[in-house]
């Protein structure tokens, strides 16, 4: 019984889904993704996890990237966007997720009946 451990397992299992969801809305850069996820303690993830994950998703063909200069005079940012393959992967994940949510709420419903 360890809530911390359970939470970190959820985080590990859903990070890829969260990152792809964020990128599906529009191209985003690493720091932007990390600060978005930071808004929720359950999702907050470190740089040393997010950046390698982005590289892996790119190598697997789910993402492409491009460098873009900033208006604020900061160094260029590396933006990631979904490939068609990545979008199909994300759609499949969404379906799985909906199935999981439904299964859990059915389990909760079962308990209420008893």
């Amino acid at each position: 019984m360890n809530l911390e451990e359970w939470r970190s397992q959820i985080k590990r299992g859903t990070l890829e889904f969260c990152v792809l969801l964020l990128i599906s809305a529009k191209p985003r850069y690493g720091y932007e993704l990390i600060s978005r996820l930071e808004r929720w303690p359950t999702l907050a993830t470190k740089e040393s996890t997010v950046y390698p994950l982005l590289r892996r998703l790119q190598k697997d063909g789910a993402l492409t990237s491009f460098w873009q200069d900033t208006a604020e005079g900061l160094p260029p940012r590396k933006y990631y966007e979904l490939t068609d393959e990545g979008r199909a992967y994300l759609d499949a994940m969404k379906a799985e997720w909906a199935g999981l949510i439904e299964a859990i709420s059915e389990l909760e419903g079962d308990n209420d009946d008893e």
Binding site: Y29, G30, Y31, I34, E47, Y51, R55, W67, L74, P75, P76, R77, K78
Partner: peptide, 11 residues
């Protein structure tokens, strides 16, 4: 990798 990290540090 280093350029991407540099970008975040600047941020």
């Amino acid at each position: 990798i280093v350029n991407e990290l540099k970008s975040e540090i600047a941020e």
